[in-house]
């Protein structure tokens, strides 16, 4: 299964991004192989509908879990509908690497 983690940058030492729809990057982790890839978020400067379009992107990528700091009401409703697990972490000091380590332990 694939997991998406919202990130401020495009490498493993980047800090975790607390925003979902307007996160800078998404780190896509394949939990079976342990491979990661980074995808730039095109919705970062969208004036509206960023959450909705980001959920659509997640569906396209086949993501089953998303880790972020918060989800807007529309994003929440959609993620719930598509059975995508939402995980909220409130610690913004974490780096992507540390989060991945937590998952793989």
């Amino acid at each position: 299964m694939k997991t998406a983690i919202t990130s401020t940058g495009n490498h493993l030492d980047s800090e975790f991004d607390l925003r979902f729809g307007r996160a800078g990057w998404f780190c896509i982790l394949d939990e079976d192989t342990g491979k990661t890839s980074f995808i730039r978020n095109e919705q970062i400067n969208a004036s509206h509908g960023a959450g909705t379009r980001t959920v659509e992107k997640m569906m396209e990528l086949g993501v089953g879990k998303v880790i972020s700091g918060d989800f807007g009401p529309k994003a929440k409703e959609l993620l719930e509908k598509f059975n995508i697990q939402m995980i909220i972490l409130e610690d913004e000091q974490l780096t992507i690497k540390e989060i991945i380590k937590k998952i793989q332990n």
Partner: peptide, 18 residues
Amino acid sequence: SAKFTIPLNLPEKTCPLC
């Protein structure tokens, strides 16, 4: 202390992180 939802297609109630 992670907060999470459990979608209907996942039966087990375990923390997805740890």
